[in-house]
Structures are given as C-alpha cells and as structure tokens.
C-alpha cells in the first residue's frame, strides 16, 4: 500500500464516477462543437417553410431538399471556380514552397552576403503591411492586373513560413553539410538530397499553410481580377453576401431556394475540401511548427 499511496492521484485507476464525469464533459463539448455543423448542414437541406417554422435554426429538416445545392451548382459557375481554385492552389503552393525553401535555405547558411539584410527585409513585412493601394499599384505597374499571376506573386513568400523553415534548417547538424561538401555536393544537391528529406514534417506544415491560404484567399481576387477569373472563395463569398439577392434574381416560375439554405450550402461546399485534407496533414501540424519555432 505504501507504494500505491506514493503514486500521484492522476496515476490511480479512475473511479466509475470520474470516468462518467469525463464522458459527460467530453460529450457536452462534442455536442457544442458538432451542433453548429449539424445546424449548418440541416439548414442547407431545408425548404423556406422549414426554416421559417424553426425560426432559422433547423436541426432536422422536415422536407429535405437539395434545391440550395442545385442553385449553387447551376450554370457551371461554381464548378468552373472550383477548378480555378484547385489550379491556383496547386500552382501557388508549389511556387510558394519552392521560393520559401530556397530563400530559407540561403538565409540559414552563415556568411551569406547580404543574408542579414534580406532576412530583415522579409521580417519587416510581418510588422508593416504595405496596404491595399500600394499593393494594387505595384501589381498594376507590373502588368499583372486580371492575370492569375496576380493571385500568386504578391503573396509568394510568407515571412512566417520563411522563419519556420529557416529555423528548422539551422537546427540540422552542421556535420551533415560538411560531409556533403567533402563529397563534392553543391548547394542545390545539399538542399535536395540532405536538407529536404530531413524536413518532411515542417515542409508538410508549410505546404498546408500555403495551400489553405491560397484556398481561402479572396481579397486579392476581388482587387486584381475580373469575375471570370474568380476562385471558389470569391464566388462563394458572393453567395453569402448576396444570398437574398440571389434568390430574387431567380425569376422563373420555379420557387427559388431560400437565401439561408443557399448560404449554409455555401459553407458546406467551402468546408468539404479542407475537411478532406486536414485529417491527413494535421498530425504534422504541432510537430512541424513546434520543431521550427522552439529549436530555432
């Protein structure tokens, strides 16, 4: 018993009451988390009558309908925007990761000419944003208005991601670099064969950050490109902002989907792709970011 009593209380076998309490608390938290999702999904499947009857907060639609989804996907505007978003996210993420890796690697090496200056220039952008109009003028003067490049180039390198990657690269043992050098490897080979294979975790995180950023970005699209080049986020934003007006524009004999159902359907459509990707990458999140930040 002496040994047993010396153990801290949290190492004891939990009582039935304690276990029951934990289950209850976790169940309540789960309900709090799931409730909005269920309500959003249910509202997206509801008719005008259902929404009115439940005062706008539907949990189980009485007459489920896909009318809101049909409205959203009618005419191919959303599907076209979806393809554009996938393309912008894929190309943008690839370019951003490539640029960030290159810059982080260069800045992680000692005695690089101007390295400190360029690092400060990058860090400066974390503290002071250039503002909407200066950004617009730069994009305009580069001739990038109404091009897909304007959605990628202004946000190509994130200073935060740069710092995370640079910090991680600096933690790699210098012996590895020296050994590679002795074997005659140049910087590109060192980066490709030594550094990147050791950085999969942090690269996954940075990739996810960029991908989510490109997927959700709408502001640059609103400023720089016309509506025929809008990504999904901007199109969906239109649905959310103009849900009521959208219903009003449907002037055919068929009853339109209710505005709230359309807005909730939009939330579901924008959530699904991220929900599909997250479970596979989430485990890298904590590990990758903490590795870069703490060891840096």
């Amino acid at each position: 018993m002496a040994g047993s009593s010396a153990r801290p209380v949290w190492m004891e076998k939990p009582s039935a009451l304690g276990t029951g309490g934990k289950v209850a608390v976790l169940a309540v938290i789960s309900v709090l988390v799931l409730y909005p999702f269920v309500s959003v999904l249910a509202t997206s499947l509801s008719t005008e009558a259902d929404i009115s009857r439940h005062g706008g907060l539907v949990l189980i639609p009485d007459h489920p309908t896909l009318a809101a989804y049909r409205t959203i996907f009618a005419g191919g505007v959303v599907t076209d925007a979806l393809l554009r978003s996938i393309l912008i996210t894929a190309v943008g993420t690839f370019c951003s990761v490539a640029a960030t890796v290159g810059m982080a690697y260069g800045l992680s090496r000692r005695n690089v000419v101007g390295g400190r200056f360029f690092l400060l220039v990058a860090l400066f952008t974390m503290l002071f944003s250039p503002g909407v109009i200066p950004n617009f003028l730069v994009v305009k003067q580069l001739g990038l208005l109404d091009t897909y490049a304007s959605l990628v180039l202004p946000t190509l390198v994130s200073a935060f991601n740069l710092v995370v990657l640079r910090s991680f690269f600096m933690t790699l043992p210098s012996e590895l670099y020296e050994a590679a050098r002795i074997d005659g490897a140049g910087d590109f080979r060192v980066l490709a064969r030594i550094v990147l294979p050791l950085s999969k975790g942090v690269l996954a995180v940075v990739t996810l950050f960029y991908a989510v950023g490109y997927w959700n970005a709408f502001f640059n699209a609103m400023l720089y490109v016309n509506d025929d080049k809008w990504p999904l986020s901007m199109v969906l934003r239109q649905f959310v902002l103009q849900g009521q007006s959208l219903s009003d524009t449907v002037t055919g004999s068929e009853a339109a989907a209710p505005a709230q159902a359309i807005q909730m359907a939009v939330v579901i459509v924008s959530l699904v792709p991220i929900l599909l990707v997250y479970p596979f990458l989430q485990r890298y999140f904590t590990k990758g970011v903490l590795t870069g930040a703490i060891k840096g």
């Binding site: 005419g75 191919g76 505007v77 509506d227 025929d228 239109q238 103009q242 959208l246 524009t249």
Partner: peptide, 12 residues
C-alpha cells in the same frame, strides 16, 4: 455592383 454569383462569361 453584381448581386448574386458571377454570371457566365461572354463566351458562354
């Protein structure tokens, strides 16, 4: 202003 989602482009 545009009310609602962007319309199909000129070509469509």
């Amino acid at each position: 202003n545009v009310f609602g989602p962007p319309p199909p482009g000129r070509s469509k």
